[in-house]
């Protein structure tokens, strides 16, 4: 499976042309191209009522299972703050799933639990049936803060993961150069992060994570620190890149537009305590073009419906 995005076959297509179809043949284990949005189901999860039978075997294509996860933090006033309450969610392989919610609803914490950076207070998260106990190269994070290594050049940052995995220097460099080109930074290989704008830094961060071939991308409000224009460009480019190999993506955002535009599924969360409120299938054709989508009444309806649901929730107090 690792071959599928090492940049050789799938990246020959010029960047930005959205030519994802070519890479379909690499996706043996993934859902057949074109049927993607039908084939992927995020098991919803009204957290309270859904209890997973212990004996049940998950469908073969479930890649991440979050099973009754709760997270309690102790605040500085020594009071318990329930960041996540009894969250259950299953994510299918190859799905683009957004977690959408107001700030403070614990959506990032949920992502950190899947990443293995934070241990849940209760419950377990599993990756391919294995309980997650720590970070690993099968789950690649992309953070809002970029978190690049400032002492490394763009190339050095992107090569870091492959080198760590024992890929020979020449090979790692060749792959990294292809990835840098794919994220639109050809010519900036020898620049240091300090010399780059926010959008460029996030492109490097994405390339750095893609370079070690994680099976799941964990994106933590990756475009949250960028201006509107840059944000739109990066959303488009991310979709184009994603179309090539349809990697599983868990994407945290507080932007309704962004979630609807990018995702197959939108997981709506409510805050205090953080719970899953609604899981919405976004049944829009792919590959998606922003300009077409903005005019599409179905897209508009998704956005309006979700915004309404949030408004209702706010009026009615804590949802669920």
């Amino acid at each position: 499976m690792k071959v599928r995005q090492n940049g050789r076959g799938s990246n020959d297509a010029p960047h930005g042309c959205g030519n994802g179809r070519l890479s379909g043949r690499f996706l043996a284990k993934l859902v057949p191209y074109g049927e993607a949005s039908d084939g992927m189901t995020v098991v919803p999860a009204r957290s309270n009522e859904w209890v997973r039978p212990v004996t049940s075997h998950e469908p073969a294509s479930a890649i991440i299972e979050i099973d009754r996860v709760s997270q309690v933090f102790q605040t500085s006033a020594r009071r318990d703050h329930v960041a996540l309450s009894d969250i259950s969610l299953t994510i299918e392989e190859g799905a683009f799933v957004s977690i959408l919610g107001p700030s403070g609803c614990g959506k990032s914490t949920l992502l950190y639990i899947v990443g293995g950076f934070v241990s849940p207070t209760n419950g377990t998260a599993r990756m391919k049936g294995q309980a997650i106990t720590g970070p690993g190269p099968d789950r690649g994070p992309v953070f809002q803060e970029f978190a690049l290594f400032p002492w490394k050049t763009v190339l050095g940052n992107v090569m870091y993961g492959p080198r760590q995995q024992g890929v020979r220097a020449a090979e790692a460099e060749a792959q990294s150069r292809t990835l840098i080109e794919m994220v639109g930074l050809k010519g900036f290989e020898n620049f240091y992060p300090k010399e780059l704008s926010g959008g460029m830094k996030q492109r490097v961060a994405l390339a750095r994570t893609l370079a070690y071939h994680p099976e799941v991308l964990l994106m933590d409000e990756p475009f949250g620190a960028l201006d509107a224009h840059t944000r739109t460009r990066l959303q488009n480019d991310l979709l184009n890149i994603w179309e090539r190999d349809r990697k599983t993506v868990l994407f945290v955002t507080h932007s309704v537009d962004e979630a609807v535009f990018l995702s197959d599924k939108v997981v709506m969360m409510s805050k205090s305590p953080g719970r899953i409120r609604e899981v919405i299938d976004i049944d829009l054709p792919r590959p998606r073009r922003r300009t077409e989508l903005l005019l599409d009444p179905r897209y508009q309806k998704y956005v309006v419906d979700i915004e309404r649901m949030f408004d209702d929730g706010d009026e009615a107090g804590p949802a669920l």
């Binding site: 990443g115 950076f117 953070f143 978190a147 290594f149 994680p214």
Partner: peptide, 27 residues
Amino acid sequence: VEEKMLWSGAAMGLSPAQRLLRIVLPA
């Protein structure tokens, strides 16, 4: 040193000792 930088290293498979030497030290 930014926590997320260490997390990024951990996701690449760096052990705690490697993170100290190869992320905390240069940072």
